[in-house]
């Protein structure tokens, strides 16, 4: 619509949105520099005390480690399973294909909040409460259907001719997949991977239910647990919140182009 030229008010509108997007975080940053515990003070004194206390005097480092491990394994599991499944659904014709794909999609529409108690019971029965494994399994289950559908439509947009040529040349199916399809799939994988990573990084409800034990907490759970018995420690929460945004922000900066590209190649065809 505005492909050739941007009207002047486009800048205004985007500028306003940018301010709306960033200003709350800027205020949060100011709050995090206030050494007095409480939003009461507004003393005009700034220090990095809260950051020091978040980084050195709390379990935040452990929470970061936990979240990173869980997020990476979830991304790995999700992408592996989704790629295999997407390849099947894209390159093979077989009875029940659409039924299976739709069944998987339906299962993913289970509202997390409604199955927390049974999920907890299941995890307890399997003795997997407070482990990385249960978080990876549950997050993977939740993210798989979407990723599967995304990668499938992405794969549909990759012309099969090259692959067929490779097969004729005596390449195995797996060989053709690895050499021909996988390289072209990279933008889609990066986009899906980023989405899954951000999801895990920010998830709270499942994480707090299945891994509330202190040394197993994820970042967002750790942040919530800052609400103490003796008033909210705003400065520390703010510092923790700012720190918690950094890892996904770095990933996002690197992968932002791939994100839109990866999604658009897989979008409506």
């Amino acid at each position: 619509m505005f492909r050739d030229k941007a009207p002047w008010w486009a800048y205004v509108a985007i500028l306003l949105t940018s301010i709306g997007a960033v200003l709350p975080l800027a205020w949060l940053f100011l709050l995090s520099l206030d050494p007095n515990q409480g939003i009461a003070s507004g003393s005009g004194v700034y220090s990095l005390k809260n950051y020091a206390s978040v980084i050195f005097q709390s379990m935040m480092a452990q929470y970061f480690l936990n979240t990173t491990i869980v997020a990476l394994f979830t991304v790995l599991c999700t992408l592996t399973c989704a790629t295999l499944g997407a390849y099947a659904a894209s390159r093979y014709r077989f009875p029940g294909r659409e039924t299976i794909m739709i069944g998987l999609l339906l299962a993913s529409m289970t509202p997390v909040i409604a199955v927390l108690v049974p999920l907890y019971a299941l995890a307890a029965k399997l003795q997997l409460l407070n482990t990385y494994s249960i978080l990876v399994i549950v997050f993977t289950a939740w993210q798989l259907p979407g990723t599967l559908w995304l990668l499938r439509s992405f794969m549909n947009s990759i012309p099969p001719e090259l692959e067929e040529a490779a097969l004729v040349d005596g390449c195995s199916r797996a060989g053709a997949f690895v050499r021909i399809v996988l390289p072209q799939l990279v933008p889609g994988l990066l986009a899906a991977g980023l989405i899954v990573f951000v999801y895990v990084w920010n998830e709270f409800i499942i994480a707090v239910s299945l891994a509330a034990k202190q040394d197993m907490r994820l970042v967002s759970v750790g942040l919530y647990f800052y609400l103490s018995d003796f008033g909210v420690e705003w400065g520390k929460i703010a510092a923790g919140a700012i720190v918690s945004i950094i890892p996904p922000a770095i990933l996002f900066l690197f992968l932002q182009r791939q994100l839109i590209h990866g999604l658009s190649a897989g979008a409506v065809k």
């Binding site: 491990i69 394994f73 790995l76 599991c77 592996t80 399973c81 299941l122 029965k125 399997l126 003795q127 997997l128 407070n130 482990t131 990385y132 494994s133 990876v136 399994i137 993977t140 034990k213 040394d215 197993m216």
Partner: peptide
């Protein structure tokens, strides 16, 4: 569902997941 059948099923063709399950609990 007990743990063994569950994990057995999940591990089917799932190297990565099995690796994740192998994390020691504290």
């Amino acid at each position: 569902l007990d743990r063994r059948t569950f994990l057995g099923g999940a591990a089917l063709g799932l190297g990565t997941l099995a690796a994740a399950s192998a994390f020691p609990r504290p």
